[in-house]
Write a protein that binds this DNA or RNA. Sequence first.
RNA 1: GGACCCGUAGCUCAAUGGAUUAGAGCAUCUCACUACGGAUGAGAAGGUUGAAGGUUCGAGUCCUUCCGAGUUCACCA
Length: 605
Amino acid sequence: MKFIVQTLTQDIARAFKSIYDYDCPLENISFQSTKKEFEGTHTFVVFPYTKALGKKPAEIAEQIGQYLLQSNSNLKAYNVVQGFLNLSFKTQVWLNELSKMVKNNNFGNLPWHGEKIMVEYSSPNTNKPLHLGHLRNNFLGYSVSKILQAAGYDVIKSNVVNDRGIHICKSMLAYQQFGRNETPQEAGVKGDRLVGDYYVKYDQVFKEQVQTQKASLKAQNPSLTDEQLNEKAAKEAPIFLQAQKMLQEWEKGNPEVIALWQKMNGWVYEGFEQTYKTIGVSFDKFYYESETYLLGKDLIKQGLENNIFFQKSDGSVWIDLSQDGLDEKLVLRADGTSVYITQDLGTADLKFEQFGMNKSVYVVGNEQDYHFQVLFLILKKLGRAYAEGLFHLSYGMVELPSGRMKSREGTVVDADDLVHEMRQVAAERTAELGKIEDFSESERQDLYGQLALGALKYYLLRVDPKKKMMFNPEESIDFQGNTGVYLQYTHAKICAIIRKAQQLNIQLLRAENIEQLATVEIELLSLLAQYQGTVKEAAQSYSPALIANYGYELARLYSRFYAELSIFGETDDDKRALRVAISYKVGQVLKHALSLLGIESPERM
RNA sequence: GGACCCGUAGCUCAAUGGAUUAGAGCAUCUCACUACGGAUGAGAAGGUUGAAGGUUCGAGUCCUUCCGAGUUCACCA
């Protein structure tokens, strides 16, 4: 199709030249897809040229249409609506196009171009289990990796695990005080859940202590405001002081603390591994902040020498970004220890040294927009060549009908629980329909997982990543309409058709003597031909939503095709074969698109 | 307060780099094949695209102001 559109583009330029003696650069000529109400698949908009040509839009469109019809042998007809020139291709063009697509088993994968890109995602804290917000992150990261791969990149999926810091010490401390050495096995829960429970426990105790502390502070300092009292009490809560102490011990390498840390992190990793496996995501490279948190200090020294940073009298190091519309930002504490951005600077260098990638994507929530703006800007100022290729894939928060999720208020939707519930719904619906009575138990279980995750992933990925989204539990378990299950169902239906076609021994690509295609057939072929462009666009904009929406549109159009036209009831052998071939290709593209979303395509369901 | 982001049908979302009559799904109502998978299809109803200006042949999209929601502005991560 690409080539055919190219010839059309050239012919339009020639038309401009020959009719109006107007030189139009090829890159200024482009097409839109024709709206459904009108005949044709490609539309050329002439409005932008009316000024230069001094003619009315409809007149220009008419003249160019005539010129094209004579000069371009692929063209069948044109029609003009105001300034819109709608073009239709000959049947043979579509038949050739279909034949090419069917023969191309690599359809949807763009040529490898040798650029390397790292996608960092997931990056969990090791103090609590994964929740719904992490799911959006993980699904996005995984899907973007797949899309980039399909678009011809070498992709490295990385995960920077936040396994150290005061928050980790909090759950350790609560476990130490209240845990009685219980193990996940003894407690009968996943390791990440157990550790998360102690993080919650810490918070309970902390809150109680703040209240007590506040009361005694108030008695001593009646003049303080409520806010001041809260702040002071929080800083003086015994358990908080203990947590701070523990962090210091951890940094000193106190064997007891380290041993506890290793034990508890080990539990969390086991839990995460299990969750990652069930939700179907994976990584090529793990970084641990406990190993990277000291990085970046050399960079600070360098920046000081080059006067990019400056030092205050207390020894702390800063960068002044006020020229760039931002603030002054601390990059190293007065005591010489790192802050968050210090290690991010160092880690950026480390990643680049190890992989030498051209681009690097950070899949991180939009709460950290400012942080990444600063991080990238500093790296540019430090003259890092790779800084140009850095991108923050900033995604919006997932909200519940009851509002934003808050771990402290217990409104968090746990990832494992959610997947479990979805599986049950999938099992119920499947049982109601009774189409897989001959499946073995393990085949059933596989199917439930595929449907559950298909529904969940599609639900979270179909929305533009940049936008915040609403997670409505009732809607998410809906398997009708614009859902992942709908795409899977359409694919499975097509598989049934292909099975039957094989039984009937129908050849996909026979010499087709077809004079005219049905409108819905042309629409389908045209949409299929757009798939590779969609993949490219999705890669450029890092947006799985484009793939999801394309897939839905394709499934919907196919469903209409299926309802309007009979396949096996068609008596003309050529037409019957054609419809099977179209079905086959639609099935393949659906499967490919779903795989880019990290969703599996069962052949029966 | 500064910065950033968002506001489209009752609800959830689409709408290429500006373009013909702003499209889907859910929910509501109606209809459909003793044909290939009804987890489906067709139709009805539902909109002053938060408001007001501006630029343009043309604005949901760009610019300005206002209103409303959110995020962020730690020697936390």
